[in-house]
Write a protein that binds this DNA or RNA. Sequence first.
DNA 1: ACCTGAACACCGTTCAAGT
DNA 2: ACCTGAACACCGTTCAAGT
Lengths: 199, 199
Amino acid sequence: MATRPYHHGNLRETLLLRAQATLRERGAAALSLRELAREAGVSHAAPRRHFPDRQALLDALALAGFARLGTELRSAVAGAPEDLLDQLRASAHAYIGFAAADAELHELMFTSKHGVHAEMIDAAATEAFGVLIELVLRGQAEGALPAGDPERVGMLHLATMQGIATLVASGMIEPERVPELVEESIAQRLGAARAQTQA
Amino acid sequence: MATRPYHHGNLRETLLLRAQATLRERGAAALSLRELAREAGVSHAAPRRHFPDRQALLDALALAGFARLGTELRSAVAGAPEDLLDQLRASAHAYIGFAAADAELHELMFTSKHGVHAEMIDAAATEAFGVLIELVLRGQAEGALPAGDPERVGMLHLATMQGIATLVASGMIEPERVPELVEESIAQRLGAARAQTQA
DNA sequence: ACCTGAACACCGTTCAAGT
DNA sequence: ACCTGAACACCGTTCAAGT
């Protein structure tokens, strides 16, 4: 019979995987280092080598969340037709869908107090949102989106997606209404660009 | 010498007030029913009459938050010139300012799991956002804002404010950049309306 | 109607000690 | 380098009992 070795060998990943499942199923409040340790079959103090405290675990979850969000945004855009409109739409639904499917994770990703890891998480977020910013840049180059500081126009678009996602998660927007909100948002930006070029 | 009476007489309000301060100063994670009870000079089980569990306290805080947000939005609009643009600007900054000054409360207000009190909180949110929706309606009547389902146009505006607020709170938007984002947002909506009427 | 006190089962965090 | 076990100080929640 194989006895469990003293060194787990893969504890960090094991803890992180279980934590992701718990977060999704029972929320961030239900996350406990001790319970995760129990589930991994190690002592309650073992996680400490990998996550010095509870916040470190939450931050690691947020970080992994941004990595996955980035992947999903990229593949949504890659899977859509070449058309700018289709890609804007696809990325919007990918973003809002991510937040709806993993509301607790999404909340964690945008919480105000990451403390020590704030910089790392900010960098991951910037990386994840890179696709959206690129899309906006392309739209501006085509004259389809409003001109002006690309960072500003991109951030505004991002904020709108973020806002819709949060309002859906908090129950203030019914999921069925998401498509028309996305359409309205895109239509208004295109309209604003048209008004600019006609001025 | 006056001895503390057996009945506190005002325990619920006392707990709520202290909780608001703690939330602002040390965050939601630091909120403990036992500590609040200690600070109020009652036994640790006393809060139970007023807040059956911790979530009930958090929900009460969210509810009070929406009430205050509604007040601040209304007074911001009331304090601005008659001009639609000025009022849109004023309400936007009031909203984002509220979230910046009370990031933890704002987070709590839009969390995904209010559970039992979700309906009550939704109603409070709708009430608080009433002013914004009225503003949008007026803008549509003047032809200054895009036409179409007022709920949709209003929700989109709301979502944008919400998104900017969240991104500021999470450190992804520097506070100094808020004014230009607000201006860009308003300008794009006005532009979209112009493009509509010219079509 | 409102509050107390004891009890239960959980936490996060720390640290000397083991492998 | 990684994990254990005991210890400490905290929780939320429950409930019989007091005023």
